[in-house]
């Protein structure tokens, strides 16, 4: 298994990995992890949790479940990804249940992604479609419609990953004022996002502007 290229979606490759992993081959487990972890993180866990640390924890828990239940994994004739996605979704639900206890801020934004997914055709996370790439394209279309000040606040905070204090400094406002500007910027963004994506979905267009 060492050096073998990960091929998620190639069922024969997956079965072979799974069998070897069940026989105690750690490299086979690592191959499955490398094949599916990025997709689980980006397409299942981040949209459900909206929090990097929580998504990483849920990802770890998902593969720990695979480690513990390898003998009972029943994938029929489907990719292992579907089994992992179901486990990951349950982990995310568990995290939302204990949100108050962990003190984590979790925000599922699946609802905001649904117009993208609807526009992309039947939902199958294993298809070549990349939800995140579509989201990036849609964001790029929505941002120019915002007030430049709002757009600047969003870019500084989310794309340049500046601290709140640094953002306030760069925008030459007080910290509390920046918080309000960002709140308004996010609400404006959401409003524009919904308007544009609902319109695109109605016209059968993807965010990139191409026909389906």
């Amino acid at each position: 298994m060492r050096g073998e290229e990960a091929r998620p979606g190639d069922l024969r490759w997956e079965r072979r990995c799974l069998e070897r992993f069940r026989a105690g081959d750690g490299e086979a487990f690592a191959a499955l992890y490398r094949a599916f972890a990025p997709r689980l993180y980006g397409q299942v866990l981040m949209p459900k949790l909206g929090n990097r640390q929580a998504a990483e924890d849920a990802l770890s828990e998902t593969f720990r479940t695979l480690l513990e239940r390898a003998d009972r994994v029943d994938v029929d004739d489907r990719s292992l990804f579907h089994w992992l996605a179901r486990v990951a979704a349950n982990k995310a639900i568990d995290m939302h249940r204990v949100k108050a206890r962990t003190g984590r801020a979790l925000s599922s934004f699946e609802g905001l992604l649904s117009p993208l997914r609807d526009a992309g055709g039947p939902a199958d996370e294993l298809e070549a479609r990349d939800t995140r790439a579509q989201a990036q394209q849609a964001v790029a279309r929505v941002l120019p419609a915002l007030n430049p000040r709002y757009r600047r606040a969003i870019e500084l905070r989310f794309f340049e990953e500046q601290s709140r204090e640094r953002c306030a400094e760069l925008m030459e406002v007080k910290l509390g004022t920046f918080d309000v500007v960002l709140l308004r910027a996010l609400r404006a963004f959401r409003k524009e996002w919904e308007a544009q994506l609902v319109a695109m979905a109605g016209e059968g267009l993807t965010p990139a502007g191409s026909d389906r």
Binding site: A30, Y33, R34, A37, P38, Y41, G42, M46, P47, G50, N51, R52, E56, L59, S60, F63, A105, S107, S108, F109, G111, L112, L113, R132, A135, Q136, V139, I154, F158, F159, E161, L183, L186, R187, F189, R190, W193
Partner: peptide, 27 residues
Amino acid sequence: DAAEAAALLRYAGPEGELSGARAEAIL
């Protein structure tokens, strides 16, 4: 509503992708 929009923007930004280093650390 704003928190969800923020999470979506983070998803579209660098946080939306699992970095190779983080993935290997988890593994």
